[in-house]
Amino acid sequence: MALTEKDVKHVARLARLSLSDEERERLRGQLERILDYMKNLEKHATGDVPPTSHVAPLSNVWRPDEVRRWEDVESILANAPERENSYFKVKKVIEP
């Protein structure tokens, strides 16, 4: 599995990860080796085998859609990297 620098850049952008040139090159080599190892899956035929996403003996689990009040709002905002009053503060998303 040949992985190019462009592939790694693309995946890093999808994952919202900024990587240094050195990190990118190291990851390229490591991922290439790991993906190469994973080729061993090909020898197992899976024609009509259904996929397993989880093994719990459950299908849809429903609950009533009820509003519940969280009293201690301050304990949530206390973890915010930046806040203003009762809001999380972020960079401008939409230009006026």
Partner: peptide, 18 residues
Amino acid sequence: RARGFGPEVKRRIMLGTY
């Protein structure tokens, strides 16, 4: 994310995203 995550976490995020 680049600053907060260590090398193994980045590796797995990259592998999973790929």
